[in-house]
Amino acid sequence: MDDQVIVRMFWDRDENAVAEARRQYETYLTYISDNILHDRMDSEECLNDALLAAWNSIPPQRPEDLRTYLGKLTRRIAINRWRMNTRKKRVRSDLTKSLDEIGEIISAWDLDAELEAEELSREISRFLKSIDETKRRIFIQRYWYCESIKTICERYGYGKSRVLVMLKRTRDDLAKHLKKEGLIT
């Protein structure tokens, strides 16, 4: 079923919209939540919460790309759940590492300048569009989809050190780009 048809069902408050969205995108959404939570039950609950959030937010939202919209909801909910799960015990996971790696750059951001996340995001997107396709995809797979280094290595047939160095270099280049744009002090 076409995305816009499902979105229209949401707008019409047709409860089949949730079932249809689930049928269409369950694999994708579970892939995102699994990468973050590594727990089947948590992932399932996360999926339900994401679909509920979609039901509550459409309308007024009218996403053009429903899959990515649902993906963003799922990612946010999964991160919140992960944070809740790990609040008391310090657990190292791919998400922790992924956030730490990207945090190397973000920690240099000048928060006093009250930068909006939206502006930063726009610059990150602009930077990503300017770099080599493979580097861009690996960066997003690591930092947006929170994939493990091992999974990325297997997918591309690269050694671990190559992927790590590639990510490190991309982060360095991103930092340079943000500095050049005056977003980093």
Partner: peptide, 13 residues
């Protein structure tokens, strides 16, 4: 900031 990366980049990856 990371979450709001452009949809087309997320989709492509």
């Amino acid at each position: 900031a990371i979450e709001a990366i452009d949809d087309d980049l997320i989709r492509d990856a």
